[in-house]
Write a protein that binds this DNA or RNA. Sequence first.
DNA 1: ACTATCTTGAGATAGCTTATCAATTTCAAC
DNA 2: GTTGAAATTGATAAGCTATCTCAAGATAGT
Lengths: 153, 153
Amino acid sequence: MGVFQAGLSVMSKILKEMDVLRQHLAKHQLKLTRQRELILTAFLRQEHVTAETMYHQLAKKDPHLGLATIYRTLNLFCEAGIAQARHFGTQTQYDNISHKGHHDHLICTGCGTIVEFENCEIERLQEEVATKNGFVIQTHRLELYGLCAHCRH
Amino acid sequence: MGVFQAGLSVMSKILKEMDVLRQHLAKHQLKLTRQRELILTAFLRQEHVTAETMYHQLAKKDPHLGLATIYRTLNLFCEAGIAQARHFGTQTQYDNISHKGHHDHLICTGCGTIVEFENCEIERLQEEVATKNGFVIQTHRLELYGLCAHCRH
DNA sequence: ACTATCTTGAGATAGCTTATCAATTTCAAC
DNA sequence: GTTGAAATTGATAAGCTATCTCAAGATAGT
């Protein structure tokens, strides 16, 4: 049952975000293509990916899908509010923020494990700091680096 | 008087951090060179720089100072705990964390202005989140992106 | 179906950072 | 102060990620 429900939830999530994408495309006189649909459905099944990763993942489904198209499309998702880019090391990670809203990261410097979290109180304090400085926040990035329980032995 | 005191404080800061660097070098069998001294003193006078920026700044003092040396040295400072690298857009910013401890950033997406801030309450909540997930924080990064008062018109 | 417009794919290109290596400099031991 | 092993530098090549170019192809409104 859990699996069945999860399947349904993933499917409805895809339908919902496909609609978000469609609206964004319509508003900007852009077009819905086979590639954009393909990349969106694959993207929504994961928490965070790099363009390179998706390139290899999707090579099976469409061997001719170009890397440039993936970059272009992931950047498009950012503009549509479906994804969020995050510079991590030398690469750019694209985070899936569509279904769970914005989330922050707790990253283990030992094994690279990434734990996601949300904290309303922190978000509220961020707004406070921004207001105090005359800013209106559009987005933010919070990453905590440390050692997880396992890597501390 | 203010200027005189600021001058003294910058000087003592440089002496102090030079000592931190010396200790790090000794511990790792590295050597103190003219270039490392030069780059450190220039680095400590600023909040955050890119390697390219320092390259141009220091060209006046030493026209033969190579860009690679600046990258190598700034990375060395990171290992010594004097600097902290931050990937911003396509470039890497090196932040001066030696004299004021860790600080976070409020960045205007309109004009690029960077305002620094510290907020103990946020830091405390970060510790809380980490502990809850079995992590021990080593460092963190918090960046708030938005529009400053001026760019909102 | 037609057509203007957008998109794609493949490779070239750009931009930032690191690797290479011979020549030079540092520093501890003499 | 010399000496010599080891680290560092400078100049440039190479590596990587991301974007640009443009002819060929796909999309969507009419």
